[in-house]
Design a protein around this nucleic acid. Structure first.
Lengths: 238, 238
DNA sequence: CTCGCGTCAAGAGCAGTGCTCTCGTTTTCG
DNA sequence: CGAAAACGAGAGCACTGCTCTTGACGCGAG
C-alpha cells in the first residue's frame, strides 16, 4: 500500500506540472511570469493555482530553488568528472559547466543572478544551494593546497578586517584554508559570474564573435590569478 | 527673444519633472516603474504622460541614458582627478567611483546592469555611454603602456580567433593597443561589474562585514592581474 | 484682432495582472 | 457512513499599460 494516497500523488504531479509549465513560460516570456497564463496553459482557472502555491512569489521561489540545484549539480558533476589531480582541468570544467548551464537556461539564470525582484526576499533555504558553485571552485583550491600544487599567497596582503571576515568564512566551510587563497577563489567566482552575465545580458555580443574562446581565455587568466599550476599535458583543447 | 516658445519651455520642464519623479519612484519601488503612479504624483492623469513619452519603455530608456551618463561622468571624473602617472591610483579611483555611484543609485544601477527587461531592447544610442567606464579602465592601461610602466603580456597567450576579435575592438578605440592587454582590461571591467553586482544584489552581505575593504582588496588583485606597477608611495590610504 | 492649427489634460474604456472569497463537488479518513 | 478536508470554478477587487475621444487652451498666420 502506497503511503501517499491517490490524492497526494496527483497533487504532487500537479505541483510538478505547474512548475514545468511555469519554467516553459519563463523561458519564452522572460522574468515576468504570469500566473494566469500558466493556469490557462493547464486548462485551469487562475485561482486554482493557489491550491498549490500560496502566491506567485512562492512559485518563483520553488523555481529558483530547482534552478540553484540544477546549476550546482552541473558544476559539481563537471568537477567530479575531471581528473582530481588536474586542478586546471577541474577549474575549467566547473566554469564551463556553469556557463553551459546558463546559456541553456538563460531565463532561470537571470532569475538567480539578475536584478532581485523588488518585493521579493530570498528565503533562507536558497542560500545553501546558492553556495554550491563557489564552494566547488574554492574546493579545487583547497585540494591543490593539500597536494602542495598551490602555494598560498601571503596573508599580509589582506587588510586586517577583510582577513577576519574571510577567516570566519573559511572556518565555516574550509577550516584551515588561508584567507588570501579564499579571497582569490572568491575573485574567480566573481569573475565567472561577471563573464556569464555580460554574455547573457548582451553586453559582449556586439564586439566578440568567438565567445567560447573568449570565455576560456578569461577563465584561464583567473586560473593564473588564483595560482593554479600549469597543466602537465598540452593545454590546448577544443 | 528666446527661440523656444513658452510652450516648448514648459514642455521641457514637464519632461524633466516626469523623469525626476520616475527616478524617485525607481529608487523606492524598484524596477517595476508604474506610469500611473508617476502621473498621480504629478497630479496628472496617466494618459497625459503619453504626451511626453510615447510609452513606458521610452521613459525607461531616457532614465537609462541619463544613468549611463551619470556613471560615466563619475568614473571619468575620478580618473581625471588622480595623478595621471599614478596608474594604480587612477585604477582604484575609477573603480571606487563606479562602486560609489552604484551604491548611491542602486535602482538605476540595476536598470543598467541587471536582468534586461523582457520585451525591452536597448536602443543603439545607449551603447556609447555604456562603454565609457570600460574605456576609462582600458585607457589607464594604454597610458601605462605609453609611459613604459606596463609590459604588455605576450600575444601568444591568446587563441587566434579571440585575438582577431580583440584586434578589431582595439582598432576602434585604442589603435595599437596589444590585444592581450585589452583582454586583461576587459577582465578588470568584468570583475568590477561582478563585484558591484554581488554586493548590490545581496550575495555577499551575509558573509562580509567590511565591504569597502573587501572591494579594495579585490580591485587590487585585478590591478595586479592587468599588470599595473606598484605605487611609488605607500599603498595605504584613507 | 481673429481664426484655425496644434498641443494639452482629462476621462472612459480595453485587456491584462495578482489575489481573495464563495460555492458546489469530490475525495479522504476516523 | 458521515464529517472534514481538498478541490476547481467563478465573480470580484484593485491595479497595470495603453488607446481613443472630447473639450479647452496657446500661438502664429492672415
Amino acid at each position: 500500500m502506497s503511503a501517499p494516497s491517490i490524492r497526494a500523488r496527483v497533487r504532487a504531479e500537479m505541483i510538478g506540472e505547474i512548475k514545468a509549465v511555469a519554467r516553459r513560460h519563463l523561458a519564452t516570456d522572460g522574468a515576468n511570469l504570469s500566473l494566469r497564463a500558466v493556469a490557462r496553459d493547464m486548462g485551469m482557472v487562475s485561482s486554482a493555482i493557489y491550491r498549490y502555491f500560496p502566491s506567485r512569489d512562492e512559485l518563483l521561489t520553488a523555481l529558483i530553488l530547482e534552478a540553484y540545484d540544477a546549476l550546482g549539480d552541473a558544476v559539481e558533476a563537471a568537477d567530479a568528472a575531471a581528473d582530481p589531480r588536474d586542478l586546471r582541468g577541474r577549474w575549467h570544467a566547473a566554469c564551463r559547466a556553469a556557463r553551459g548551464w546558463a546559456l541553456a537556461h538563460p531565463a532561470e539564470y537571470a532569475l538567480l543572478y539578475g536584478t532581485p525582484v523588488p518585493g521579493y526576499a530570498a528565503p533562507d533555504d536558497t542560500v545553501g544551494p546558492a553556495q554550491r558553485p563557489p564552494l566547488t571552485l574554492v574546493g579545487i583550491l583547497r585540494d591543490g593546497l593539500a597536494a602542495g600544487a598551490i602555494t598560498p599567497p601571503p596573508a599580509e596582503e589582506l587588510p586586517a578586517p577583510v582577513r577576519a571576515d574571510l577567516a570566519e568564512l573559511a572556518e565555516a566551510f574550509f577550516p584551515g584554508l588561508p584567507e588570501a587563497l579564499l579571497a582569490r577563489g572568491m575573485a574567480g567566482w566573481t569573475q565567472l559570474f561577471g563573464l556569464i552575465s555580460f554574455e547573457l545580458f548582451g553586453r559582449i555580443n556586439r564586439s566578440m564573435a568567438h565567445r567560447d574562446a573568449y570565455f576560456d581565455h578569461q577563465i584561464r587568466l583567473m586560473a593564473d590569478l588564483v595560482g593554479l599550476p600549469a597543466r602537465p599535458q598540452v593545454p590546448s583543447e577544443e
